[in-house]
């Protein structure tokens, strides 16, 4: 018994396959989705999606978005999503340093830039912690 899992971000299909279980980082808490789950529409927070398939486990970072759950299908429409194995850790650390630097230099004076910098910081933090915690080997 499997459930179809599709993860798309605004610029590509990140993952699609028939899987055994999906764990979503919902705004109201983690949700484990098994086949025949009742229909749910949920917003997602910054976090990690776990996908279990034939004994192995895959991890995807997701920077917010929404997920639609149907009995035979999970569709994740992410603002941005990546396979943890594909994350470039150097780039993420660089982005974090840059964002912290900008914050120190007083980016908060301009609200637009401040929001952008903060989002960048959150994204890179998410990437770095996901890699540390979930990357194999």
């Amino acid at each position: 018994m499997t459930i179809r899992c599709e993860i798309v971000s605004q610029d590509r299909i990140v993952y699609q396959d028939d899987v055994d279980m999906v764990v979503l980082p919902g705004t109201a808490g983690e949700m484990g989705i098994l086949p025949h789950h009742s229909p749910v529409l949920t917003t997602l927070k910054y976090g990690v999606i776990h996908v279990k398939r034939q004994g192995e486990e895959l991890f995807f970072t997701v920077a917010g978005g929404i997920a639609e759950v149907q009995p035979d299908q999970v569709t994740v429409l992410a603002d941005a999503a990546e396979n943890v194995e594909e994350i470039n850790i150097q780039r993420a650390e660089e982005a974090r340093r840059r964002a912290e630097q900008l914050l120190k230099e007083g980016a908060e004076k301009n609200p637009d830039i401040y929001l952008q910098v903060q989002a960048a910081l959150r994204r890179s933090n998410l990437r770095i912690s996901a890699v540390k915690r979930y990357r194999r080997g």
């Binding site: 705004t27 109201a28 229909p39 749910v40 529409l41 949920t42």
Partner: peptide
């Protein structure tokens, strides 16, 4: 599309999700 019309549950709550979506 799915043909089911079974009712969605919404998390965290209906208004917030639909306002977003």
């Amino acid at each position: 599309t799915h043909r089911t019309s079974s009712v969605f549950t919404y998390e965290p709550d209906q208004n917030e999700v639909l306002e977003n979506v």
